[in-house]
Structure formats: C-alpha cells, structure tokens
Amino acid sequence: MKPEDLLPIKTFQQLLDESKAKLKELKFRITNLRPGGVFHTLMEIGHQGLADLYSLLGKITPQIYLDTATGFWLDFKAADYETYRWPAQKTLGNVVFGRNAPGGNKIIDAGKIVATEIDLSGNRLKYIVAAKTVLEAGQLEVAVPVKAEFEGAAYNVGAGQITFLLTYIDGIDYVRNDDGWITREGTDDEDDESLRARAKKKWNTLSVGPGADAYRYWASQVPGTVVIDVDDQHPRGQGSIDVIIASTSGIPTQSLIDAAQAMLDKKKALCANVLAVGVEPVVVDWDVILYVDHELADLNEEDRTEQLAAIKAQGEEIIDIMFQYGDTEHADIEKISIRYGVIREQAIGNLLKIDYVIKPVINQPAADVPVTSRQLAVKGTVNVTVLIAS
C-alpha cells in the first residue's frame, strides 16, 4: 500500500456528484443542478477548492515517510536521523605545468585556466589555478594546485585528459595531469536513493557494540566515500576491523582515506582497532572494435571520416563513464559493478547504444574481470577502432 492510499482522496467530479446526490436526498428547494446554472456554478467554485485540498493531501502524505519522501522533504526527514545530504563539491588537484627547455623563474598566477579537449557535445572541462606558483629557474616542470570550474564528479578525469592551457603564460609550453593528480574528489549533489539508504543505516549505529553496518554507515558520512566492504573477521589480529573504501571517482585519495579514518576514530568503541583502507586497483585495458552500419559507406569521404571519428569518440567516452562510480548524469550507461568487476556483456550493451553501431567486439579484456572485496576495477588504456561492416 502506498502512503497516499491511506487517505480517501476524492476528485472534483466525485465531490460534485456526492453533493448533488445529498441535495436531492434532502429535497433541496433548488432543483436546477445542471451545468451552466447559477447554483451549479457556485457549487463548482466551492468544490474546486476542496478538490485542490484533497490533491495536496495526496502529494504531502508520501513526504512524511522516509521510504517515499523526495527532495527537500527527504532532507528534513533524514535530518531526524542526523543524516544530511552530501553537497556537490569541486575537484581539487595538481596539474603539471612544464617547458621544453630550462629558463629563469616563471610565475604562474592564480586564476589561469587549463582544460580538457572539447567533447562530442561541444563542452570542455575547465580548471582554475588555485594559488600562485613559481616554476623556478633551471626546472622544467612544477605541480600547480587547481580547482574545477564547477562542482561535480565529471571533473574527476583520468590521467592525461587535461592538456590545454587556455590562458597564455609566456614560457609555459605544456600542461598535463598525471596519475594520482586528484587531491579531493569532486562530487555531485547526493541523489535521493543514496541519502535514503544512509538514513536507514543510522539504526545500525545505536547498538552498544557497533557491528559492520555501523562502521559502514559512519564511513559513508564522509562526502565522496563509497564503502566497498567491512572486514570484521580480525584481518590484522584479534579485535581488528578494516573498512574498505573507494571514492565516487574510483581509487580514493589519501585525503579521503584520512577523512574516513577520522570519522571512524570519532565514532568507534574505545577498544576497537578500526582502519580505513583504500581499495586496490585492478587495471583493465580495453581494445574494442565497433562495426557500424554499411550505410555509412555511401557517405562522401569527408562526412564518412567525420562520422567514424565521432563514433570512436563516443565509444571512448562510454568506457570512461562506465568507470565513474559516482556518476549520476548518465543513468542510461551501466557502470562497472563494484562487487563483481567488469562484465563484458554489460560493456557490449552500453556500446550498442551508439548510433550506427551494430556489433561491438571486445578483444581486451578477453574475459570478465572479477574483483575481490578489497579490489576495484579501474580504467587502463583504451583503444577503439571503428570499421564499416561488409
């Protein structure tokens, strides 16, 4: 039963018909109750307000229960459980600024902008230098702190994606982001289902001796954290517990692990030996052939080349999104399973959503890639080839 079914919600027409029947039963002196009559019009005005009230009750009733509340109503309900929605936050990290030959000191002022390539939608992700940095004389490279232009998990890009310097700096020849460049993961606004699930887990923390579910709840209170597993079978000796975590972008940064550890230290029992542990990466390289509809062969060479390049870029983008564990903007693309790892059929299904693709062939990985409770699949190299089916 739905919460709104608890109330006898009536429609405008039901209310009007009931009133007419009651007036006839009472032998009301006014008998012209046909539409268009003066008295009927007055009845409609009064009953419309009552019908609106019934409609409002039908919408409000689900919002008073944790299982069915949404939006701001869910925020208020979750607050009763001392659980609050994660706000979106910007990605922070370090981007390498470099030059091809040694030279003197070069100042990189705050506010300079670096970016990724333009994607298929004509957009690019921009990052702003967060603090003035000096590339000292004789050095070729320096790591510069940057922050994303806007909040969101989309800014947690992989290594080698940030390659453009949009604001000119004399003496700087290139920029790049290396492995481990992120110092704080960017996150989207937490969705309703995630907040609801965390609020329900609050009950697990109320026992005198907290169990695995309590540690799972406490670690998940740190924005950007994805709790993979809780190993409470004494992994480091009697009384030890490991809380294995990832981030919404995959492998957690040390700052995220430290934040989770601080939360666990604050909440755990005094005698408990609890450790936040980052997942171990399982790198998965991709070699994919996308066979496309033969009708593309009828295009002129320029249009055909452009279309095949667009399909290749879409394939690479889909594989990238599959590994964005905290992504909420691409609900149509199934993400890699945190629990089961890479399933080839799942990837094939995602790639078949590209226009003109009739058959994806995955050469690598050659088989499904399972993971343990302490591992997480992460994207390695990606090679996508597009061929016209014969």
Score class of each variant (00 low, 15 high):
residue 247 S to I: 06
residue 247 S to F: 02
residue 248 T to Q: 13
residue 249 S to H: 07
residue 250 G to S: 07
residue 250 G to A: 06
residue 250 G to M: 02
residue 251 I to C: 01
residue 251 I to T: 06
residue 251 I to W: 06
residue 251 I to R: 02
residue 253 T to H: 08
residue 253 T to E: 02
residue 254 Q to L: 08
residue 254 Q to D: 14
residue 254 Q to I: 03
residue 254 Q to C: 01
residue 255 S to Q: 14
residue 255 S to I: 01
residue 256 L to G: 01
residue 257 I to Q: 03
residue 258 D to W: 00
residue 258 D to F: 00
residue 258 D to S: 09
residue 259 A to G: 06
residue 261 Q to V: 02
residue 262 A to R: 05
residue 262 A to T: 11
residue 263 M to A: 15
residue 263 M to R: 15
residue 263 M to S: 14
residue 263 M to Q: 15
residue 263 M to L: 06
residue 265 D to N: 15
residue 266 K to Y: 15
residue 266 K to L: 12
residue 267 K to C: 14
residue 267 K to W: 03
residue 268 K to S: 13
residue 268 K to E: 09
residue 268 K to W: 04
residue 268 K to H: 13
residue 269 A to S: 14
residue 269 A to W: 04
residue 269 A to N: 13
residue 269 A to G: 15
residue 270 L to E: 15
residue 270 L to P: 11
residue 271 C to P: 04
residue 271 C to E: 01
residue 272 A to T: 14
residue 273 N to C: 05
residue 273 N to K: 10
residue 274 V to L: 00
residue 274 V to M: 05
residue 275 L to N: 12
residue 275 L to Q: 11
residue 275 L to T: 14
residue 275 L to G: 00
residue 276 A to S: 12
residue 276 A to K: 09
residue 276 A to M: 09
residue 277 V to P: 02
residue 277 V to S: 02
residue 278 G to I: 11
residue 278 G to F: 10
residue 278 G to A: 04
residue 278 G to S: 00
residue 278 G to N: 02
residue 279 V to F: 07
residue 279 V to G: 02
residue 280 E to C: 05
residue 281 P to L: 12
residue 281 P to M: 12
residue 281 P to V: 10
residue 282 V to Q: 05
residue 282 V to S: 07
residue 282 V to D: 01
residue 282 V to C: 10
residue 283 V to K: 08
residue 283 V to Q: 07
residue 283 V to P: 12
residue 283 V to N: 06
residue 284 V to G: 04
residue 284 V to M: 08
residue 284 V to W: 00
residue 284 V to F: 00
residue 285 D to F: 00
residue 285 D to I: 00
residue 285 D to N: 14
residue 285 D to Q: 03
residue 286 W to A: 15
residue 286 W to R: 12
residue 287 D to R: 09
residue 287 D to L: 11
residue 287 D to E: 15
residue 289 I to A: 01
residue 289 I to W: 03
residue 290 L to E: 03
residue 290 L to T: 03
residue 291 Y to K: 09
residue 291 Y to W: 15
residue 292 V to Q: 13
residue 292 V to C: 14
residue 293 D to G: 06
residue 293 D to P: 10
residue 294 H to D: 14
residue 294 H to Y: 14
residue 294 H to M: 08
residue 294 H to G: 10
residue 295 E to K: 14
residue 295 E to H: 04
residue 295 E to G: 00
residue 296 L to E: 04
residue 296 L to F: 14
residue 296 L to D: 09
residue 296 L to H: 06
residue 297 A to C: 07
residue 297 A to T: 02
residue 297 A to E: 08
residue 297 A to L: 11
residue 299 L to I: 02
residue 300 N to P: 10
residue 301 E to W: 03
residue 303 D to Y: 11
residue 304 R to K: 13
residue 304 R to L: 05
residue 304 R to D: 02
residue 304 R to H: 00
residue 305 T to R: 11
residue 305 T to M: 10
residue 306 E to M: 10
residue 307 Q to R: 12
residue 307 Q to N: 06
residue 309 A to E: 15
residue 309 A to G: 10
residue 310 A to N: 13
residue 310 A to I: 02
residue 311 I to M: 07
residue 312 K to R: 11
residue 313 A to G: 04
residue 313 A to P: 09
residue 313 A to E: 08
residue 314 Q to Y: 02
residue 314 Q to G: 10
residue 314 Q to T: 01
